[in-house]
Simulated assay, not measured.
Amino acid sequence: MSLLLEPLVAAGKEGVDMVCSDGFIRRVFPILAAYVADCPEQCLVACVKENRCPCCRVGPKQRGDNLVHTLWRDEKDTLAELAKHQNRKPSPLFEDDGIRPVYKPFWADLPHTNIFSCFTPDILHQTILDARFKAMNAFAGLRHFKKGISTVSQWTGAEHKEMQRVFLGVLAGAVSAKVLTVVKSLIDFIYYAQLQSHSTKTLDALQAALDTFHTNKQVILDLEIREHFNIPKFHSLQHYVDVILHRRRLHIDFAKKAYRASNRRDYTEQMALWLQRQEAIALRVSYIQWRKNQDLSADADSSDESDNEDEPQSAVARVVVRLPSTNLPAVSYKIAKFPAIENVAVGHIQTAYGAINIIPALTNFLELYFKPSPGDCPEMELDGANEK
């Protein structure tokens, strides 16, 4: 990997000139943003033991807890501990963090890169494994394990997914409702994690499934099915939401979608061309939106100037609108230049729309927000309590 990524070191530090989609040459600084690998390879790249988390410094006895915040590993600290260990001056932190002696990791010289935040989830190795399988009824779309699962010599990702579809049905009636809740929450987590695209709603559901598992997992310990959940695979689930938010989009937008847009032959060139066109469209849309905003601002300024030129300066009265303070988020509104329905009587509005208090409400609004202040209007003066 050091030889493979060697050109990236100089490019990330000094930059390289590249032709962008708009035809201009710009200096760009490419960096390593994501590293897709299975769990054992992640631990090897992170220079940690396979019973530790390659992303954070979770304690050996806290891997089964539902942690809200974790301390991420630091590249400088890890390299410093490796250097001390190589010089036979190891500190207690070397063993506490579960570091393994890989003295020259390939990412040591990569600029602007935090390898510990580049790892993506490994669903196959981190979340998935008979008579009841044989007893399951056959159903369209579901695989029937008529010989059970003990005869399967090698499990693939597709077979794991097929087993997940029937796993809850296999356990139904054989275990208590609490155990089913734990199993269901884990299966829900796996299926949510495999969605091709995510929204705030699906990420909330993903986190809720994990929280449900940790809330009910004690029943597994009470039944002595397991002694503890203090294993790296369960802890790795803590990082899924963060990784999906910050890294997953890169793999989907720049790799998966680009590949699907090709004809699967000589796809590398087609993917690069597709990404170039997508970038060109995005730049064009951004430019058009910017020009629209510029035109709207220019029209508003010219309209204000023309209004001021039509009347003498002495006859122009300023109206100051004072809005009450609020903690609500700012919201933009679009107001039509012309009413959709003209010449509507107030009585019709009160009857058709139930706005029975429209007249007093409008009166209060105008008095509150559009009442000129002293000095705002040249023709208005205050003399004690009398108003002229």
Rank of each mutant, 00 (worst) to 15 (best):
N357R: 14
A336C: 13
G12P: 08
T268Q: 06
I335T: 14
H144D: 03
Y103I: 10
C118N: 08
C53G: 13
H239V: 05
L171I: 04
G15M: 04
S197G: 09
V58M: 11
T156P: 02
I231Q: 11
Q196V: 08
R265F: 06
A255I: 13
I149S: 04
R291F: 02
R247D: 08
R318I: 05
V320H: 14
I149D: 03
A317R: 12
E95Q: 14
Q294L: 12
E342A: 15
E309N: 05
K371N: 15
S197N: 11
D77A: 11
D301P: 01
R27K: 14
A205G: 01
K256H: 15
R260S: 10
H235V: 01
D299A: 11
P121I: 01
W290Q: 13
A282G: 08
D17Q: 11
L245W: 02
L221W: 01
N343D: 15
D242S: 08
R248Y: 11
F24K: 15
I149F: 02
D253S: 06
L82P: 04
E75T: 15
I31Q: 13
G169I: 00
L273W: 03
T326S: 15
L71Q: 14
L124G: 02
E224Q: 13
G64S: 08
N308V: 12
S150F: 04
K13M: 08
C118Y: 02
T326E: 09
D301T: 12
V48Q: 01
E305I: 07
Q313A: 06
E279S: 11
I349Q: 07
F365A: 14
A208L: 07
D77Q: 11
E75H: 07
H348N: 09
